Simulated scan of single mutants.
Amino acid sequence: MNYSADSLPPIKLIPIEDAALTRESGAIKRPVKTTPPTDIRWVKVLEFLRSKNLAPNSRKLYERELKRFLAWSELHYHELRPRHLALYKEYLRDELRTDAGKPLSKSSINAGVAALKSFFKWMCYTYPDIISTLPTLGIKLEKVPLPPVQSLTPEQMERVWSALELLGETKQRDTALVHILSHGLRAGEIVELNVGSFDGKLLFLPDTKTNEPRLVPLKKESREVLAQYLRSREERSEVLTSLSPLMISHHASYKGERLSYHGIYFAVEKIGELAHIVDLHPHSFRHTYATDLLLLGVDPSHARKLTGHQSEKAFRRYTLRSEQEAAIAAYYCAIGEEEAE
């Protein structure tokens, strides 16, 4: 049979993208739902964040910085090389701007680089088949002076103890909380403490920021305050077990539950307001504890063990003050004076 061009049916052209997104049924076109592919790189970031014992603020910082890096580079992890990370650091330093239009500070640049160093170290250890060599090798942090120690003066500590007397329902808990904070514990470490963490003399911290267990000896007054706090809870018919939270919330929505990281911050902020101390935060007590240890003459290596500082450089700012005090005392001793007139 011979066919002519006129006898052939008309050719209907269907654009490829339309064919992928629609399915024809007569004259009706029904959209076909499509799910964008998951960025496998971000899946690894989430796994990394879940594996780390990070305080809420640290987790937010890591998440923000890793998101920023993934938005900057489309390379897969196995394709990254040190030169790419060096370029990214240049981007943070020379191109990125704050909301106010200013360049990032050296501390902010270091926060971004440190987050990448931590993540890729974890990737290299957890997935050596994906990353066999660290792409952050050779990428150095910006040199910044150590921030000053924000320890409280004896007079400020007296105001803190006086402020605790003005509290109502939370007075006993917050007094115990300040006693624990005054032994150098981080807020995130206190959140994880259970009743079984306290043996009547020491606090045992199995999970810390440095992933190393730590024993914290409590002075007599603090031991008694903490023991009384736990007895008062039992007197209110609370059944305490070794896994019961050491510190509990008094918030209406979470009453009796484990005191959260933010709960600790709110409690300390309230104490600061009553004590008329601007910007009092949980870490203020940690700074004070580390400084006092050295002023008492505790060996710096022992002091670091007690505070759980992994970095000798980070701990150096506490030793500076004790060395200054010792130098002043040596001067007055040398010239035969007990103290400055």
Score class of each variant (00 low, 15 high):
126 T>G: 12
128 P>Q: 02
128 P>H: 02
129 D>N: 12
134 L>W: 07
136 T>Y: 08
139 I>Q: 03
140 K>H: 09
144 V>S: 09
144 V>H: 01
145 P>M: 00
146 L>H: 02
147 P>V: 04
147 P>Q: 05
147 P>F: 05
148 P>V: 07
149 V>R: 07
149 V>W: 03
149 V>L: 09
155 E>W: 00
156 Q>F: 08
157 M>W: 15
157 M>N: 15
159 R>C: 05
160 V>I: 15
160 V>S: 10
161 W>C: 12
162 S>D: 13
162 S>N: 12
163 A>H: 11
164 L>Q: 08
164 L>S: 10
164 L>A: 10
165 E>N: 13
166 L>H: 06
166 L>P: 01
167 L>C: 05
168 G>M: 06
168 G>H: 08
168 G>F: 04
169 E>T: 07
170 T>Y: 06
171 K>C: 09
172 Q>N: 10
175 T>H: 05
178 V>N: 04
178 V>Y: 04
181 L>M: 01
181 L>Y: 00
183 H>S: 07
183 H>D: 06
183 H>K: 08
183 H>G: 08
184 G>A: 06
184 G>I: 05
185 L>Q: 11
186 R>C: 00
186 R>L: 00
187 A>G: 12
188 G>E: 06
188 G>A: 12
191 V>D: 06
192 E>C: 00
193 L>G: 01
194 N>G: 12
195 V>F: 02
195 V>E: 03
196 G>I: 03
199 D>V: 03
199 D>L: 02
199 D>Q: 04
200 G>H: 05
201 K>R: 05
204 F>P: 00
206 P>S: 10
207 D>K: 14
208 T>H: 02
209 K>R: 08
209 K>S: 04
214 R>C: 01
214 R>P: 00
215 L>A: 05
216 V>P: 12
216 V>R: 07
217 P>C: 13
221 E>V: 14
221 E>G: 09
222 S>A: 15
223 R>S: 13
223 R>V: 12
224 E>F: 14
225 V>T: 14
226 L>H: 12
228 Q>H: 12
228 Q>R: 13
229 Y>T: 01
230 L>Y: 12
230 L>S: 14
230 L>P: 15
231 R>H: 09
231 R>C: 07
231 R>P: 05
232 S>R: 13
234 E>A: 03
235 E>T: 09
238 E>M: 04
239 V>C: 04
239 V>N: 05
241 T>E: 04
241 T>F: 01
244 S>E: 11
244 S>T: 11
247 M>S: 01
249 S>A: 07
250 H>A: 13
